[in-house]
Amino acid sequence: MYPAQRPSRSESVRIRTLDYHVRLWGEARPGTAPLVLVHGWMDVGASYQFVVDAFSAAFAAGRQIIAPDWRGFGLSTPPSPCDHYVFADYLADLDQLLDHYAGEQPVDLVGHSMGGNVAMFYAGVRPARIRRLVNLEGFGLPATRPAQAPGRYAQWMDEIRQFERGEMALKDYDSAEGVAQRLMKTNPRLPADKAAWLARHWARQGSDGRWAILGNAAHKIVSAQLYRVDEAQALYEAITAPVLSVEASDDSLGRWWKDKYSLADYHQRLSHVRDCRTAVVQDAGHMLHHDQPQAVAGLIETFLSA
């Protein structure tokens, strides 16, 4: 199994109505911006371990690194049953997490996928709280039209019924090795030792001996609200921090959406960010922080140290 070079410690922090699980590396240093790493959909804060291990000794020793499990993922479990999640809640959760760990001090923020989308929106809502921002494949979603709203609300209500009937349940596994095999099937670049390590953070063994994914199936329910590009661009325009947008060479965006949404569309949206540059990680897919952690760590470290 992968040997973590910089073991983390865990804390539980009361955020709104939840006990948020937060993974920490290093200690807070006065005058040094904390580094906050936020994960993507159906992932956990531990997913950043390989990147943290790849940071240089000087960089890692110089700041506290903070990686929460978003609500309904990992060990951040809602206190009562939940049948859907609202994107805006991630912004409010992050706001109060920064209150706890950084106070008035601006932070360096890194987000992957869904976490990258949260980071970009949050930096537009609270620009003074972000010193620098790294967005790892947080592309947003295809443009929508108001005429799609009736169908979207109907889809949302129908999927809540499907969830209540158990039709959206996540698959469980007979062993941690089974979870690791699932991770490698989804991402063929993931080495077996890293998959075995991730499996024990991405899933947990229950009293029945089965290994269950640490993610609420209600996350699979579509958002009731349409994704509005005009709102996203307004939030991008409000960002004052320098932004580094990092893409993987595989073009996962094109594979997901085909002719509905392209990298060219995404780059056009990025033109609304006043201080933005882009980088591409070669030989990597969407989970680029697993595929090429040294390259991702190097980009983050260079950008934040500029």
Rank of each mutant, 00 (worst) to 15 (best):
Q5S: 12
S8I: 10
S8M: 06
R9K: 06
R9V: 06
E11F: 07
T17F: 05
L18F: 02
H21K: 03
V22E: 01
R23G: 06
W25I: 08
W25C: 05
E27Y: 09
T32V: 11
T32L: 08
A33L: 03
A33R: 05
P34I: 06
H39M: 03
W41Y: 07
D43V: 10
D43T: 09
V44L: 12
G45C: 10
F50W: 01
V52K: 04
F55W: 01
A61V: 08
G62M: 07
I65D: 00
D69T: 15
R71N: 14
F73A: 14
S80A: 15
P81T: 06
Y85Q: 02
V86Y: 11
D93N: 10
P106A: 08
V107D: 00
D108N: 12
G111M: 04
H112Q: 01
G115E: 01
G115W: 00
A119F: 04
F121V: 12
R126M: 12
P127L: 01
P127E: 02
R132Q: 14
L133W: 05
V134S: 00
E137P: 13
E137D: 15
G138H: 00
P142H: 01
P142R: 12
P146G: 03
A147D: 10
M157F: 10
M157P: 02
D158K: 07
E159Q: 15
R161H: 03
R165F: 08
G166P: 11
E167K: 14
M168L: 15
A169I: 13
L170A: 07
L170I: 06
G178K: 15
Q181S: 13
Q181V: 13
R182Y: 08
T186E: 13
L190A: 01
P191Q: 12
A195K: 07
A196L: 13
W197V: 08
A199D: 04
Q205C: 11
G209A: 14
R210Y: 11
R210E: 09
R210M: 05
W211I: 08
A212N: 13
I213F: 08
G215V: 07
A218S: 09
K220M: 04
I221E: 05
V222F: 05
V222Q: 12
S223G: 08
Y227C: 06
E231W: 14
Q233V: 13
E237L: 11
E237D: 14
E237Y: 04
A238W: 09
A238K: 08
I239L: 11
L244S: 04
V246Y: 01
E247H: 03
A248E: 00
A248L: 00
S252Y: 02
G254E: 12
G254F: 09
R255C: 08
K260N: 05
Y261S: 05
Y261W: 09
S262P: 07
A264N: 09
D265C: 09
Q268N: 14
V281D: 00
V281A: 01
G285L: 06
P293S: 02
P293N: 02
V296Y: 01
I300D: 00
L304H: 04
S305E: 11
A306F: 04
